[in-house]
């Protein structure tokens, strides 16, 4: 199958498994359409043909046809067995990753995706993968259930706390596509989006080298803060230019007076910011939802300080 384009029913098919699944989908689809048209056609025909013409009309007894009855048990049974076997074979292939797969660790948490690459590079809400190479994602959740779904690869699997689950795929073309969370996980479930960037092998390698963590211990605090701002995807909800996204902008935040939902207020000093990051539900800024992921308690002391220094720098 050369055609990678989207069809009416299916998005682009960009993994090695996708065309196989699409053929199966369209097989079931067309068989269903034929059955549906036949049944509805018969129904419409009967309604027209045998429409009551006179109130005194009497019907005669119709013998039930044994052949017909056997046929419509046997034929659908054969059809579903074909479909079952086919679906079963593809399912087994989808469930077992090739042994030479490149492994990326995925952590889902309310409401973001973290990706960790073999060399220690970490990205948030951006999955970078090389084309033409089997990739295995080893996934777990830090809080509730999530589900990792990349439509163009036709892969999906629930992501559970305290357990690893996995999906694998081999991308066939470069590009940038959507990743969704498909297991309901609370307020910003619909905002738990990521992008997958499919690169050719050399671009991927360059990217990987650049993203490898340098010596973070020596990085100046505001710079480290900026790096974390990107990595932890704070930017998805907090702008730096004063505009409102899901949360308040960081511009001019430091030192300003904050008003909360319960009517109280406080000055945004270091300790307030610290609390806002570690325990966001403690005080909710007026006019906003309690939308901060509660999962930042894993940040180290130095990282926290760096983030606060970065926020302080946004005047």
């Amino acid at each position: 199958m050369e055609d990678k384009g989207a069809t009416t029913w299916m998005p682009e098919a960009l993994s090695t498994m996708a065309p196989e699944i699409d053929s199966l989908f369209y097989f079931v689809f067309w068989v269903s359409v034929i059955i549906f048209v036949a049944v509805m056609g018969a129904m419409a025909y009967f309604v027209i043909k045998y429409k009551r013409t006179h109130p005194n009309e009497r019907t005669e007894h119709v013998e039930e046809s044994k052949i017909l009855e056997t046929a419509w048990i046997v034929v659908p049974t054969i059809l579903v067995m074909i479909v079952f076997t086919w679906g079963f074979q593809s399912f087994i292939k989808m469930s077992s990753a090739p042994p030479d797969s490149y492994e990326i660790v995925v952590r889902g948490s309310k409401w973001q995706w973290n990706f960790e690459y073999p060399n220690g590079a970490i990205t948030v809400n951006e999955l970078h993968v090389p084309v033409d190479q089997p990739i295995k994602l080893k996934m777990s959740s830090t809080d509730v259930l999530h589900s990792f779904f990349i439509p163009v690869f036709r892969v999906k699997h629930d992501v559970l706390p305290n357990r690893y689950t996995s999906v694998w795929f081999e991308a066939t073309e470069t590009g940038e596509y959507d990743v969704f969370c498909t297991e309901y996980c609370g307020s910003l479930h619909s905002g738990m989006l990521a992008k997958v960037f499919i690169k050719n092998q050399s671009d991927f390698n360059t990217w990987l080298d650049e993203s490898a963590m340098g010596n973070l211990d020596e990085m100046p605090l505001p710079e480290l803060g900026e790096l974390l701002y990107q990595q932890q995807a704070c930017g998805g909800c907090h702008s730096l230019d004063g505009s409102r996204v899901v949360g308040p902008s960081f511009q001019g935040l430091y030192g300003s007076n904050r008003v909360f939902e319960d009517g109280s207020s406080a000055v945004a000093d270091d300790n307030y910011l610290r609390e806002s990051i570690l325990n966001p539900a403690a005080r909710i800024v007026e006019g906003y939802i309690n939308g901060m992921p509660p999962s930042y308690s894993g940040l180290s002391e130095r990282e926290l300080t760096a983030l606060i220094a970065f926020i302080e720098a946004q005047q």
Partner: peptide
């Protein structure tokens, strides 16, 4: 359609 294992992976949820 949803009962077909390989397709359900894509269509589920």
């Amino acid at each position: 359609m949803l009962g077909v294992l390989a397709i359900d992976i894509h269509l589920h949820d």
